[in-house]
Design a protein around this nucleic acid. Structure first.
Lengths: 301, 301
DNA sequence: CTTGCTTTTTTGTCCTAGACAAACACGATG
DNA sequence: CATCGTGTTTGTCTAGGACAAAAAAGCAAG
């Protein structure tokens, strides 16, 4: 297992750091320093790939690469919580029950987790389940992942199982003929969908007609889909890991592509730091989303 | 809407063609020829992006780029069927019923499609539903998409709705304590999951313990997950669009990362042309998958 | 005519190294 | 304390060259 080494394409795939960035870091900071194969191409050892992934993780949290690369690897784990602190305080409420759920994931007990969540869903009803269980749980998984107490694959397991629960719940709702037609999707390179699903669940409950197109739609295709479905609203989501600098340009382009009367609503942790603009409506919380729906209905009554 | 132009990163995102390839084609073939902005950077008009996506689509089908770029745009649509022809013949069987389902997607009538599929599922049972409905339907959607009679977003709609159905069906099955523990996932950059879900459904029916980790797991994380879950089998899937040349190296690496006793099973249309090797077991049909499971059980009884 | 091997063409990826602009951090001024 | 420069950090783009892997074409032998 130690003989495995990664070429630059594999490192890009596994860390999400572009080849350009990898080469630039090597030039500027002297890390990573891969060995070379017989063709002079870079060979990264698994150890450096792991450190790179850790660095990427902390960068998505807001740290600067220069500092991170200067930090010795063994101290990296400690840098976790940063913008988490403010959020953690005001939600210590029913931590107790939630951490039981987290513990099930941590034990990799998928069956028990699913059962516990099903019960909670039955007890709380879908709306409160989304707002009081799924949303805080997702936040906590994010934090645990950030501070290293959750592995990537544990976060994936959580996401996958929870997605299934939400989709299942949504499927039982009747398609609402009363609300606006809302098209749910994300741009290419953006694969996260859990937040979008939460909003879809809430909107479906409100009787909106939800059209889920999955993730990763090319922009021009989003335009075609909106036209074909005569969607009144296009709802997009960006995760925190999505390259922030691309977002404004991307929204501007999409705005040009979409019919004028189609609203563009954008949410997810990736847009928290994006400047407001007339291209799209930025939505940062689930409550915002519901409020936006209410407002839309008033304006189109 | 005509004022929208794409920079090279946006084109890479939307077409799946790497920046290197885009620049290379410009150098070698003289297409695409983007205009330049004030910084000398490439600006691709929407029209060229569309043509590029069409070319990429045909390349995934086996065509050569040199020919495609030489072909005038208006003739591109006609080049569709190629390796499809052989397959279409032997399945003209119950085309009738299936094409009704396809028509519902084409009309963007999500509700009716879901209802029709639910009925079929109830009538056929999960195994036959997967083998006789979902699998051929997916193949046909692929073909329709290839020959241009399905838009990308229609294929997305089909995929999303069908994924939901399968997941829902899987959720109702008891977790099997008898079979092997099978970990289902895909590598980064590979977002397609429908084929994996079909296999998961069949395996779950057979009483195997299925652990769905969603898509896009870094290789080292797949290794950790396999260890943590004590998985006996890791099942991966590659779509036809995944860069073929990366697959063998990738499987070799993963083989080095995984514990020796963990089997590596790989399927999907992307592996059809991959050379056989001792790194992984290549599985090309649903029947193969079931056969592999049976064999595994015999060998570990 | 087909099968299998070798050569040529096609094609993608990697390389170096420089330029620049956008984002950020810091300090000064209102 | 807030707002506005200014310097530093950082990512992305550009250029063309080199090379190897894949596909096609040519050719030989069964």
């Amino acid at each position: 297992m130690n003989t495995a080494t990664f070429n630059i394409a594999a490192v890009e795939r596994d860390t999400g750091l572009s080849k350009d960035v990898l080469r630039m870091w090597e030039r500027r900071y002297g890390f990573p320093v891969p060995s070379r194969d017989s063709n002079g191409e870079r060979c990264y050892p698994a150890e450096q790939v792991d450190r790179l992934r850790q660095i990427k993780r902390l960068m998505d949290l807001g740290h600067r690469p220069g500092k991170l690369i200067a930090t010795p690897p063994e101290e990296l784990g400690g840098l976790a919580s940063r913008r988490s602190t403010s959020a953690t305080v005001d939600m210590a409420a029913d931590d107790g029950e939630l951490s039981e759920l987290l513990a099930l994931i941590k034990q990799h007990d998928a069956a028990a987790y699913q059962q516990a969540m099903q019960q909670r869903l039955a007890r709380q009803g879908l709306q409160r389940f989304v707002q009081d269980t799924v949303a805080p749980l997702t936040r906590q998984v994010g934090e645990k992942w950030e501070d290293g107490s959750f592995e990537v694959f544990e976060e994936h397991l959580y996401t996958e199982l929870t997605k299934r629960l939400l989709r299942q719940a949504i499927a039982t709702l009747p398609g609402g003929p009363r609300g606006p037609r809302v098209l749910f999707t994300s741009v290419p390179e953006e694969a996260h969908v859990l937040g979008l699903l939460m909003v879809e669940a809430l909107f479906a409950l409100e009787g909106a007609e939800c059209i889920p197109l999955g993730t990763q739609m090319p922009l021009l295709e989003i335009g075609r889909a909106a036209a074909a479905h005569q969607a009144e609203i296009v709802a997009l989501s960006f995760s925190g890991a999505f390259p922030q600098r691309q977002i404004p340009g991307l929204l501007h382009q999409l705005r040009l592509i979409l019919p004028e009367k189609t609203a563009l609503w954008v949410g997810g942790s990736g847009v928290a730091r994006v400047p407001r603009s007339s291209d799209a409506e930025l939505i940062t919380t689930l409550d915002d989303a519901l409020a936006a729906l209410t407002t839309w209905r008033l304006q189109h009554a």
